[in-house]
Amino acid sequence: MINLEFVINTLSLGSLYALLAVGLVLVYGILKLVNFAYGEYLMVAGYAIYLSAIVGAPWWATLIIAVAASMLVSFLTEIAAFRPVRTKSMDALLVTSFAVSIFLQNVVLLAVSPRARAVPLPDFFSKTVVIGGAVLPLRNLLIIATTAVVLALLSFLMKKTVLGMAMRAAADKFTTTRLMGVPANFVISAAFLISGFLAGVAGIFWVGRSGSVDPLTGAAPLLIAFIATVMGGMNSPIGAVVGGFVYGLLFNILSITLPASMISYRDAFMFAIVVLFLLFRPEGIIRRGYTEERVG
């Protein structure tokens, strides 16, 4: 059962989930906001691909537009909605993100259509390759490679640049970071832009799997990102990556081991396992001694 195909599939699923989770946790780290609108950033990437295909953009431009659209929407939601309620209660921030999510869903519902739209992707997305006797979708290998590159870049950014230092400091002690002269709005905007970037990249692969996008496309990836981050540990990107891969592994194991009659309950099992896990270890897999200070 543990063959190359299983390993590659798990790695690619885990990579996708890790990307999703890191994007969510970057914002959580600084604002302590569980961003319910995060899934909609992926949805926006999907619609960007759909629209640029209509105008006939080349595939590389399409991909850039998709990521840029996610980043832009992420950035705009921060400015318009999150910034004014930032200093208010945690519940206000959470409910705001919920409202932003509903807002974005209904914008595309009104502006495009409630029905799913086909998303054309470059041919190489649907090609398969044969490695060691296993037939693998090229897409899965691409996810792994892309994730590796993106995470390496992110790690460089967080460790080696002053912006990264400021973001890590802000995730730890927000007010003190401002006392160093780091503008609050600047780090928060940066976090939303990076979060949008990761959502955009993940969004390309997400809609690439189903080949279509609809107003509710964001719901499933949001849930995965939630669960992966809480499992991994909400306070560090490393935890999110670990959580993403663990989630991917768990998903594939359940897919193989559950009897056919129970397979439709897979999600219920997944979430039940996660809830059980959290009951015993609320801090997640990776513990960090961060304080729970909120942005003030």
Partner: peptide, 23 residues
């Protein structure tokens, strides 16, 4: 600040670098 408020996960070097952020 009271209680020192060191960035615990950042190195001494990084703490000092952020200290210099303003100027």
């Amino acid at each position: 600040p009271e209680g020192r408020e060191i960035f615990g996960a950042l190195t001494v070097e990084e703490n000092l670098r952020l200290g210099a952020f303003a100027s």
